[in-house]
Design a protein around this nucleic acid. Sequence first.
DNA 1: CGTACTATGTATAAACC
DNA 2: TGGTTTATACATAGTAC
Lengths: 227, 227
Amino acid sequence: MAREKIHIRKIENATARHVTFSKRRRGLFKKAEELSVLCDADVALIIFTSAGKLFEFSNLSVSEILKRYLSLSKNLEKSEEPSSSQMLQMQLLERGTHSKLTEKVAEESKNLRQIGGKEPPGLTIEELQNLEERLEAALNKVIEKKTEKNTRLINDLKQKGMQMALENEILRQQVTRIYDMKGVAVLKDTSKGQTSGSTADGCNSSSFLQEPDSSDTSLKLGLPWNV
Amino acid sequence: MAREKIHIRKIENATARHVTFSKRRRGLFKKAEELSVLCDADVALIIFTSAGKLFEFSNLSVSEILKRYLSLSKNLEKSEEPSSSQMLQMQLLERGTHSKLTEKVAEESKNLRQIGGKEPPGLTIEELQNLEERLEAALNKVIEKKTEKNTRLINDLKQKGMQMALENEILRQQVTRIYDMKGVAVLKDTSKGQTSGSTADGCNSSSFLQEPDSSDTSLKLGLPWNV
DNA sequence: CGTACTATGTATAAACC
DNA sequence: TGGTTTATACATAGTAC
């Protein structure tokens, strides 16, 4: 983006790093706002410098979006169910992708070999091939690991979800039973398994996340947080 | 930034808006990551589309940064002991989307460079670096694609999970309130103006879960998930 | 929808204030 | 730290698959 291309790795020179931070932070905030406006999206961007300084941006207020992030609006539409068949498809797709990857790696390896071929000295070629192999192995490992991690995460989320669903149901029954005992009219479960949204009113969720007074403004600036 | 300059205002054409969103979101995420790497900063980026879809990026984990944010933005010295539901939410949020993949690639790249450095002729080195970059790019692309499906699924699960966590919290509060009304001894929350966080403790959810009257069954009905 | 292709608009690395 | 300037790298609007 400028005089020279740079590698994306930590800038060691502190001064240069700070300068870059200032510039890029502005750019990032600008882009974030543009996205929120152009696409009518709600964006929250939080940055902590290594020195612990906070910068934030949000088209609404950060707390508003965080609250939403933590609670998620109850008007959420049902998201597609990850059916087992979809799972299977996904797995197939993954496999396909994987072979594509292998292809790409092979192709690159070929190039590598060609380049190596230009070099008369044999030592380099050997080293290159060795490198090539290690690189390939490492990458495969990484990808494998990532996939595994995702799979684990998905299962974990599902399990947690089930637990919560169970707890949820029990709680709901509790409420119902208690109300019954009290003889108070209660909205019976609408059978959608998604009732609670309506129940919320009395104890609005907004109270459950200790958000910083959202009425405040000043959030649009990348100002360091004012406690 | 392209064929024509555009004004930063909501794109009315839905299709165009979605296209732009996809493109710019990626760009924004990329920039966010670059900033985090270049400047050694912690970045959390949360986006809600108007349709309620969630997108997030963080070099660490969003929840990690949210914790910091929340603890900073409020007198949350006691935030070390979030309510159980918050805990659950945090757990759901745990794990950033980005892996150490970049790191590994960078490491290998470094090795590449070192080996290249042994070679006196410059040509090979340049070619190697070029190769390295292309390989890196190709792999990132493939991996990105591969991850996309999973990411979507994971986001879905997270959304569901968080929604349920909210539901549970609300139900729990309701139960608490009911017990209050009934005059049952309930631990009044001691915090100031921040009722909910502590609710879980007073009337611990586990005790509810253990509530007898297990005669009934059907707990699994109406569960959002059929895993 | 996701992708690919350009022509252009922007962001920004360096260098200097 | 924060502005300039300049030369380049990148992002992306419009468009067609």
